[in-house]
Every structure is written in structure tokens, then in C-alpha cells.
Amino acid sequence: MFRLTMRWGAVVLVIGFLVSACAPSEEPIKNAASPIRVIAIESFLADIAQNVAGERIQIETLMPIGMDPHSFEPTPQDVRKIASSDGLIVNGAGFELFLNRLLENAGGNYQLIEASKGLTSRAVKSNEPHDEENSNDPHFWMDPTNAMQYAKNIRDGLTRIDPAGAAIYKANADAYIVKLNALDQRIRQQVIAIPKADRKLVTDHDTLGYFADRYGFETVGMIVPSFSSVDSTPAKGLAELIDAIKATKTKAVFVEANANPQLADQIAQETGARVFTGLYTHSLSEPNGPAPTYIQMLEYDTQKIVEALK
């Protein structure tokens, strides 16, 4: 009895383990007759893409609204959505790095549309965190002129998937780019209301770089000195930031919607700057919220910033 259990236990364990390792693998069979399905990872991408796609394709969003992309963990249905889609729109430039493994192994044969393709990263200033290889700032969309490139890339991607709709996508993209131009003008005009000396931004993490570059703001610093929202803050960095805020007489600290303003409040107490929460940068708001579309998101953020600094 004793030996029997032991031997069998050992045999069952090792063989069972190895058998499970050798089982065959098959890719899913796709139904050719189904309508075209295109998914965008972030909600603002979906909105831009929907403007390009018009009525022809319904664009789906992968990440729930309001979710920090860094804490997003996909379910099997999410992966299935990707695997069975015809096109997947990503921001690119390393923004969805954490999804790479998933995308590589999701299977299916969708067209990958990288929205930021062709854009070059802004020069990250030497006082900002960077290293030689990975100094890309992927938050291109915070500048509407970059979003024009997004629209063009999405237009080309949709055309690859659905050549029959080429003319529609082109017309839609052109029309949207006109709107983006107008948005750019509106933001410029609003920013004029802020005295030049006060055009200084402190944010909870470095998402407003392109916005600042485009509209003549100085980024004094960020609370989490990395582009990613998951790193924590070294005490020295925080002290330096407080000094910088005092030295530049920066008026406001901006915190994104759904972020924890605890550190920002701390800084505000030390420096006398005011904390403004609720910027939308990584996700749109709910449809009935203040920033349900990409254009409204930038308008809302601009309005917040202008109100805080003028």
C-alpha cells in the first residue's frame, strides 16, 4: 500500500505534468461573413477612430472608461475581442508596453494600427527623467496637431482592412482634421488669458509634455518623476519639486481624474500652490461627463488650466 501510493503519486505527478505540457494547440476559426470589427485600446483613440470610421464601422473600446492603463488587466473576453477583431488601434510608442505579451500571444489575424506612427518624440529636457534608450514620451495625443497624425494613421489602417470604404475614411479624416485645427486655434486663444510668467505646469505625472510644448507652458516638474503612473516618488525628488515650485512661483498643481491627490495636497501645503484635480488625460469621461470625446477632453483640460492660472 505504502509503495503503491508513493510510486503512483510520483508517476501521476510527473506524467500528468508533462502531458499537459504537450497538448496540441489550434487557432480559432474565424467566420468570414461577420461585419468588420475594429477595437481601440484607449477610449480617446476609439473616439478619434469613430470620427474617421463614421457610420461604416462601429469602433469598440478595450479599456473601461476612467481606468488607469497601468492597472488594466484584461479578461479572456477582452483577449477574445482582440483575437477575433479585424483591426486593433493602439497608441504605440511604448504606451501599451504592458500589453505586448498579451497582444503577441492573443492569436487571430487583425491589422495592428499604431496611431502615433511617424511622430517623433518631443525632446525630453535634461532636467526631466530619461535614459538614453527609452526617452520616448508617448503622450502625443495631448497636442491636437499630433492627433491629426493619429487620424491619418487610423484612416490608412481602416483602408487596409476595408479598401471599399477608402473614400469615406478619407473624407471623414479630412473633416476631423479641420475640427482638430479649430480646436488647436481655440486652445491657443484661451491660453492667451494666462499671463506669460504664469504658464507653468506641475502635474502628478508627466502627461502634459506635448500640451506644454505646443502652447508655451513650462513644465516645472511632476510629482511622480516618470512617465509611468506606477512608480513611487523619492523624497529628494519631492523636495526638489517643492523648491522648484517656490522658485518659479508656480500657482497650481494639477492632478488627473481618479488619481490620489495626497502628495499634491502635501506639496500645496508646503508651497502655497493650489491643487486642481480632475484633468482627463488617459481616458475620456462617461458620456454624460465633462469630457466624453477627445476634442471635449482637451477643451475641458484647457479650460481647467486656464481658470487655475489666469
Binding site: L97, L102, E133, N134
Partner: peptide, 24 residues
């Protein structure tokens, strides 16, 4: 990690895989 300041270093996500992203 705090000495490596780069966007790409989203180590926690590289580190903590998802069973749905398993490759051969």
C-alpha cells in the same frame, strides 16, 4: 527602479504576467 527613470520601465507589468499572454 527609482534610479531608472524611463517610461518603458513599467516593470511591475513586465514582471507580473497575465496567464492570457502566455507564449509557446
Amino acid at each position: 527602479i527609482s534610479t531608472i527613470k524611463t517610461y518603458a520601465l513599467d516593470l511591475t507589468h513586465i514582471l507580473f504576467g497575465n496567464v492570457l499572454g502566455v507564449s509557446d
